[in-house]
Design a protein around this nucleic acid. Structure first.
Lengths: 132, 132
DNA sequence: ATCGGTCAAGAACGATCGGTCAAGAATTCG
DNA sequence: CGAATTCTTGACCGATCGTTCTTGACCGAT
């Protein structure tokens, strides 16, 4: 039970992380997360409290012990660009990830990934509804 | 006169650029720009058409012939992170700036500035966002 | 069968978003 | 001077934002 639940939780957080890293923090709406996870608004809030809380979990989880992937690096970039300057806790988490035991990220590697990400066209997210 | 007008215009664009580079694109509301410029909503839209149009002008203007400053680099970072993946024109402008005649920006210099910016606390603008 | 408690579900909420427009002030022209 | 025209202004719009609350289905214990 508990194990299964936390496993599912981790999966949901991972799905949200994917949305956040792709469309940014401010660019992601709760509806986007609802759609991506299949959960419902109330459930998301019951489980995670707020959009920001969900992002914090996603950021922490994506920075596990493994080597950074493109996805986890993107999420870190989003945190650094959009949240860190105005949110001390997230700034602290982000720089904690950066100063991990091994020098996994460097300014150069971050800059390179930033440029790669900027070049990747994003599927035109529905600003106007034509889902038929 | 035309010259005076365009001078004022450039000043307004510069003020908006400062807001965009500081709080990001999605993080900046029209009201923020209204407050920063002292102009009124209608005037802004009459002169610049849209928030995006204003950002495009700001990005182009900030990437003049001079050496990049922290401010102009920040605006470029915002363009690359928030707009470039979903907006081909802005992506094109941004990469045009990057491939200027002299190698003014490198992945490493971008990454370094990204980290500096993330460390600079931003005056907590009260948008009733983190009261949870 | 009936209660009490739990939880998913999504309708509803106030605030705020980007964008528009009609009415008043200012200016130009006959 | 008065009519015509341009500019200024901020109230207003529908949509969407993040968040909360009511609803009702479900389940074990009585």
């Amino acid at each position: 039970m508990g194990r299964n639940r936390s496993f599912i939780e981790a999966e949901v957080v991972a799905q949200c992380a994917e949305i956040f890293r792709s469309t940014g923090y401010e660019g992601t709406s709760i509806d986007d997360l609802v759609q991506a996870t299949g959960l419902h608004r109330g459930s998301l809030y019951k489980a995670f409290g707020s959009k920001r809380g969900l992002f914090v979990l996603a950021l922490r989880q994506s920075a596990g012990p493994a080597m950074p992937t493109h996805d986890s690096t993107d999420l870190l970039l989003v945190a650094l660009m959009e949240l860190a300057p105005r949110d001390p806790e997230i700034r602290s988490i982000a720089f904690g990830i950066l100063s991990g035991v091994a020098p996994r990220h460097t300014p150069q590697s971050l800059g390179e990934r930033l440029l790669e990400r900027a070049r990747e066209p994003r599927a035109n997210e529905a600003t106007t509804k034509d889902s038929a």
